[in-house]
Write a protein that binds this DNA or RNA. Structure first.
Lengths: 336, 336
DNA sequence: GGTCCCGATGACAACGTAGTCATAGGGGGG
DNA sequence: CCCCCCTATGACTACGTTGTCATCGGGACC
């Protein structure tokens, strides 16, 4: 601005006025300053401006588990869209399963003075965040709750979504349903398993020996599926995208009767599979934009109590979940 | 730092020394300062630090077409990983097909004083970027060249990848191959079409009436496919992910003989489709990390001439590209 | 003509940090 | 015992910007 002022034959303060479109500058002065700005290629230094103004940086930080997965990509898109609507910029980073890395990201974002943080890594425990998150930086947890409920959070309706899957299968006549979950270090894996157990209990369905949670190795899946076949299982619910794909691979390479299958979380090509996969679709973009909304509300009113938003899921019935062999779908119950 | 200094009974400058681990501070002083930092919850203001130091902000800006697509998600992951290895933070934004929005993103990133820009939106013309990109901010174009070759660029080997697909089909005995491309406003759509024409010419294959480029409406695809069937087409190459999916949907809802199909760009579930789809896989993450490498090289040596990096593709043969009916695969030619 | 007021502009300080240089205190060598 | 040098520390200033207040000139009004 000093250089521009010299070129325009005015003071640095007047340049500031022109740059910020403040009133009370003569039109011809504005003209001179703008010409000088164009000639010198001047750009305002936003960092210095924020420093002096003491205002926010109009940016938020997003910590993810990984950037490439479709769920996180859709979530990021939802976050970025809503943030941009507010004129905010988005900083992103992925933890890649490393709690220390997540902590460093949180600290780096905080040092950049982001206005708030959105924290989604599923494999990282609370302790790292509470150790790294400065108390004056508002944060929203995504897709996972905080243990002490001190922060806002946005969750998928895991329990309800799994219940949708179980009820759908039960209404089609399945009486022996299994659950295949991902690594139990994922909170969502455990949460959805619990939802599965609850929904089965509500339906009076047995679950003993029908639940498998853990790292998705082909061996574990093969063992689980063959055990289930022996137990008369006719339908499987998979607890996330990766579990769905793992089961599909297993079934793909194997002959014999195919259990009905409902997958939690939508797959891009679900309707092109053979058979097209019935899924419980999560609204990843909706989770992202809801989180941004929570964050802005908290920035406006820091004294709000911690809130928890549950984003509904949607059952997308395709052809992978027919009634079991020999049974036709019973009439739909009317009590729900 | 002033507050910390008061609490520690020292000067602000000594706090700065402790924070930056500068030598020449007595251990007990360090101790006192660190205690005060912990008590007050002090964090250094990175923006002020960068301002005073006059150094870079250790951040780069990434402008994408959209954040949710699998190609862009993988690309972002590659960028973020490499940037983090250098201790850089990543700002992201999507243009969503809007050139003006892309320009605003470029300006916002430049005002934040990012050290460099990575620009990937495929639907946006050069003019917006040249109008918005300050000459002193290094930029790398991704997945699309610049018209005037003034900036570095990283491209997929579109021509070579399409040639891989054509040669693969030709070697299996196909003599009448068609190309289905996405909206021709995408530079990659046109580039891959040209690659298709060149590869067919090299093989002596006719292309008249076998190339369809444009918005992927079901109507256009149906018209193209039925036209091709009349022309004796036995194999189709699709020019990107969306074209592959569109064609798969069309084939899925239609009976009759199924042409062989090779898709440009990998699909997550390609091997679970029926039949599993032969693809030309792009290395999206490799494109991203190569772009970051180019950027850092230019930051180190601003006088480098503009460079163009072509990232190779990889043909993944699956079962959607068998020889045409009645033909067995001829022996593989040895001249290549 | 004097006073008041308003529009336009500039001088100065401050945001939080780090570089430069000065200074105080202490120990060793002459 | 004096001087020198080294260690530890602090005062001051600048980075680029904006808020505050002062100043200057001119026109309107009495």
């Amino acid at each position: 601005m000093v250089d521009v002022a010299r070129a325009a034959g005015t003071s640095q303060k007047t340049v500031s006025r022109v740059v910020n479109a403040e009133p009370g500058v003569r039109p011809e002065t504005i003209e001179r300053v703008q010409r000088a700005i164009a000639e010198l290629g001047f750009r305002r230094h936003d960092g210095a401006s924020h420093l002096r103004r003491g205002t926010s940086t109009a940016s938020i930080g997003l910590v993810l588990e990984d950037l490439a997965g479709p769920f996180y990509a859709a979530l990021t898109a939802g976050v970025e869209r809503r943030a941009r609507e507010h004129g905010y910029l988005l900083l992103t980073g992925s933890a890649d399963g490393d709690a220390e890395r997540a902590g460093r990201l949180v600290q780096a974002f905080a040092a950049r003075r982001v206005d708030g943080l959105l924290i989604a890594p599923n494999l990282v425990g609370d302790e790292v965040l509470t150790a790294n998150l400065p108390p004056d930086v508002p944060a929203v947890l995504l897709d996972r709750p905080s243990a002490d409920h001190g922060t806002d959070e946005v969750l998928s309706d895991n329990t309800g979504g799994i219940a949708q899957a179980v009820h759908h299968l039960a209404e089609r006549g399945h009486r022996s349903i299994a659950y295949l979950g991902d690594d139990e270090r994922f909170w969502t894996s455990r949460q959805r398993r619990d939802g599965f157990l609850a929904a089965c209990a509500e339906r009076g369905l047995r679950t003993e020996g029908r639940v498998s949670l853990g790292v998705l190795t082909p061996e574990r899946i093969a063992a689980a599926v063959s055990g289930w076949a022996a137990a008369g299982v006719t339908a499987v619910v998979t607890g996330n995208n990766r579990a769905s794909v793992a089961l599909l691979h297993h079934l793909h390479e194997r002959t014999g009767p195919r259990p009905a299958h409902v997958g939690f979380d939508e797959l891009d090509l679900a309707d092109l599979l053979d058979p097209p996969l019935t899924t419980v679709a999560q609204d990843a973009a909706g989770i992202g934009s809801a989180a941004v909304d929570l964050l802005f509300e908290r920035l406006a009113t820091p004294t709000l109590p911690p809130r928890s938003v549950v984003v509904p899921t949607r059952l997308v019935v395709r052809r992978s979940s027919p009634p079991p062999d020999g049974a036709s779908a019973p009439p739909v119950r009317n009590d729900r």
